[in-house]
């Protein structure tokens, strides 16, 4: 589906990426208001680890660097510290825009490959939606072993103490391995998620259909 959506978007916006972002990305209608002061870029605690800081991303959007932006790892690095929002002189909800861009890139299939945050996000979602509650043990182990068995054992060993403490504090139970806890109306929960997905697909579809 995602490639098709991507194609449809490319077709629809014909090189006007700013417009595409404005109309499709959560809070994307704010991107046009950036005046390139760079205070967000300088305020980001993880800034040095990004390909492109927010202000540069916003410039790249105007410069129609669609592929580069959407496949960038940058948006995935946001930790939601809100420094940028607090300082932005134009009031841009930068944190939300970054998350919006990340989500959009995933939706249309341009997300970066092997981006840990993205991987973790997916894992978290899958874990959560299964039972309606997060299964810490499975999520933790899944995360440890995401880069293969040997690496997983190594990480698990190093985190041993943390795991023991969590068990002592009753924050995690080894019994969780066997199914684990969930919401009482699991069927209702899944129905709800399905409906939400339908609504979202319809919204995206509607937008791609519109000429």
């Amino acid at each position: 589906m995602s490639t098709a959506v991507n194609q449809a978007m490319v077709e629809k916006y014909k090189g006007n990426f700013l417009k595409e972002v404005t109309e499709n990305v959560e809070e994307g209608n704010w991107v046009k208001m950036c005046m390139q002061c760079g205070v967000c870029s300088g305020s980001c605690p993880l800034g040095p680890h990004w390909d492109h800081p927010p202000q540069e991303i916003f410039m790249m959007i105007r410069a129609n660097k669609r592929e580069e932006v959407l496949s960038s790892t940058s948006m995935w690095m946001c930790t939601s510290c809100y420094n940028c929002i607090a300082r932005c002189p134009r009031g841009l909800p930068i944190t939300h825009i970054m998350h919006g861009l990340a989500h959009y890139s995933k939706r249309i299939g341009l997300k970066p490959k092997n981006q840990p945050t993205e991987k973790f996000g997916q894992m978290f979602w899958d874990n959560l939606t299964k039972k309606g509650r997060v299964n810490e043990l499975k999520l933790g182990l899944g995360l440890y072993f995401k880069d293969g068995f040997a690496e997983g054992v190594k990480v698990a060993m190093s985190k041993q103490k943390l795991g023991m403490n969590m068990m002592k504090a009753k924050r995690m139970s080894p019994m969780e391995m066997l199914g684990g806890h969930g919401v009482s109306d699991l069927a209702g929960f899944h129905a709800m998620l399905k409906k939400a997905e339908e609504l979202e697909a319809a919204r995206v579809g509607e937008n791609t259909d519109k000429k």
Partner: peptide, 24 residues
Amino acid sequence: LRTPGAGGENFYRSAQDKMVTFRK
């Protein structure tokens, strides 16, 4: 971009709001 004073800055923002693209 030289749009000074109270009027200038508002006018600039208004253009951005209307989707005028500004590039340095």
